[in-house]
Deep mutational scan, measured.
Amino acid sequence: MKVTIEENEETGKFTIKVKTEDGEEKTIEIPKENLEEILAKLPPNVEII
């Protein structure tokens, strides 16, 4: 699983794009305050880009 994290400076939010092993892609946008909480919940086999 690969996770790409991009900061949107205009909105102050982060866009998180997840690509699973089977090629499925999902995108979510979260507030900056929630980034550490989300990262802590990721499984250890995740590659963060």
Rank of each mutant, 00 (worst) to 15 (best):
K32N: 04
P31F: 14
K13S: 11
E7T: 07
T27Y: 13
L39S: 00
E9R: 13
P43T: 05
L42S: 00
L35E: 00
K32D: 04
T4S: 09
E47Y: 05
I49S: 05
L39M: 06
N34K: 14
K26V: 13
G12W: 03
N34V: 14
D22E: 09
M1F: 08
E24R: 08
E33W: 11
K19M: 14
K41S: 13
I48E: 02
K19F: 14
E29V: 15
D22A: 07
P43V: 01
V3E: 00
K32M: 09
E29G: 03
E25S: 06
L42D: 00
I48Q: 03
E47W: 03
K13V: 13
N45W: 15
I28F: 15
T27M: 12
T15Q: 05
A40R: 06
V3Y: 05
E47Q: 13
P44G: 08
K41D: 09
I30W: 03
N8A: 04
T27F: 14
E9N: 13
E21I: 07
P43Y: 12
L39D: 00
I48S: 02
E25R: 03
N45P: 06
E24N: 11
E37I: 09
V3N: 01
I48L: 09
I16Y: 03
L39K: 03
E29A: 04
E10D: 13
K17S: 12
F14Q: 00
K26Q: 13
T27I: 15
K17I: 14
E47L: 13
I28A: 12
V18D: 01
E25T: 10
I30F: 08
E9D: 10
P31S: 15
G12F: 03
T15C: 09
T27C: 08
V18C: 15
E9G: 10
L35K: 02
V18G: 00
K13F: 12
A40K: 10
E29K: 04
E33N: 07
K2F: 13
T20I: 07
K17Y: 12
I5M: 04
K32I: 08
G12H: 03
V18E: 01
K41Q: 14
I48F: 08
E36V: 10
V46I: 11
L35P: 00
V46N: 01
E47M: 12
T11D: 09
D22Q: 08
N8F: 04
K13R: 14
G12P: 01
K32H: 08
E36M: 10
K2I: 14
I30D: 01
E29I: 14
N45Q: 05
T11Y: 03
P43S: 06
A40N: 08
